[in-house]
Design a protein around this nucleic acid. Sequence first.
DNA 1: TACAGTAATTGATATGGATCAACGCTGCAC
DNA 2: GTGCAGCGTTGATCCATATCAATTACTGTA
Lengths: 240, 240
Amino acid sequence: MTETNVSFRALSESCKTCSLAELCLPRGLQNEEMQRLDDVIKTRCVVHSGDMLFKEGNRNRSIYAVRSGSVKTFTVMESGDEQILGFHLPGEIIGLAGLDEAIHNCSSKALETSSICELPLDELETICLQIPSLQKQLLKLISREISQDHKMLLLLAKKNSDQRVATFLLSLSGRFKLRGLSSQSFILSMSRQDIANYLGLAVETVSRILTKLSDDKVIDVTRRAIQIVNHDRLLEIADS
Amino acid sequence: MTETNVSFRALSESCKTCSLAELCLPRGLQNEEMQRLDDVIKTRCVVHSGDMLFKEGNRNRSIYAVRSGSVKTFTVMESGDEQILGFHLPGEIIGLAGLDEAIHNCSSKALETSSICELPLDELETICLQIPSLQKQLLKLISREISQDHKMLLLLAKKNSDQRVATFLLSLSGRFKLRGLSSQSFILSMSRQDIANYLGLAVETVSRILTKLSDDKVIDVTRRAIQIVNHDRLLEIADS
DNA sequence: TACAGTAATTGATATGGATCAACGCTGCAC
DNA sequence: GTGCAGCGTTGATCCATATCAATTACTGTA
């Protein structure tokens, strides 16, 4: 596990010009309010595959918005191995679970070259009090995270391996679509190992299922490139 | 599945006199602020085992605090069977995942006779803007819920059945202790079926593990009455 | 006290997915 | 190019837990 630390590099873009604003924290803000949010953003930085964004136990009170690329969040068990909690695409906010203690309770690592916005919580809390629609949007995002986690609990508690992999592919597909990217053809930024870990399966199982889906002409797999050939069938498989 | 609706019955107690205030939403509030929170609480009602508090899809924008007793939250899958998302004890807030849409995305049912406080979101949001420490406490509680869900994801993805049951018992034990109740001796308000569902196991497996733990003198089980005999051993089992 | 219905336990068997082991492919260093 | 390392696939086997089936214990009701 590389523990390289982030090399910060300022980027010029602001929330006002960011194409993700509608998905992200600034959604619903007026121009002037967006400027104030911009002022809160401490840094916009670029990270590379394997770089840690933040580490479990860090006292650094910030949340982070993915601006491009993708990252994973995970906890490390007593035994040492990690449990991946989520993969995060542009416009998604991470670090929300750390709001209660002044401490992060999961770690985050870049899956590829990505750019990230850092928002210090103290200042964010302050302007939230002044901009009600910002507070509302923050609550929305947090609440959405809980819903997402609940879907995942259901997946892990009830779905078999075929359903898990199908559900995973459909989730990515839908999220790419929301971001104006192809929902049928995309590149996985995470390894098979990461997928398996996230879905509570063995790597071999994930590999076998991808092969099977490919044999059945439901998807097309070439290494990390995925093409969804039969979306309806994939839906059927996902929901039993 | 009984769909009996809640029979509302007003209770006199206020947050100021509630022994759970330190665990619940009012934590950290001044006397006058607590009065304002009290005013927001729509009803304090008593529900009985099997009563629904709210239902997935309901447009009812409220969150709920458990005041006594216990409830479960769950989602219903396409296939019709339910996935339990959590069991909730006095002082815990439920319905937080529904903040983003004006709609509940899980259902909740009482496990025993319980009393519940209902807080309409619109009014809560309003006074949150006026009482910063209330907003902070709300965020804390939500963030704690996410942390809890993350622990559950880890449990479902990585732990075997022994570890799951041991972890479950320890979690209850710890939460009872926080509430000033015995951490060694308590009554399960949920059925084996509910425990199994929550832990992603079969009822038979849960039953067998409880029997085994009892045979090994780690716990004592008499129907729903649990006594933790060897707490350290239970910890060992839970964490591998 | 008897009865019905439900919850919990226990035993026997089946199976989905883990584990172990080997190999192929891809990309990078030299 | 050749060698090497990491990632991914494939096959064989095993085991933890589900499933099926039967029995027992308990709860509420008449």
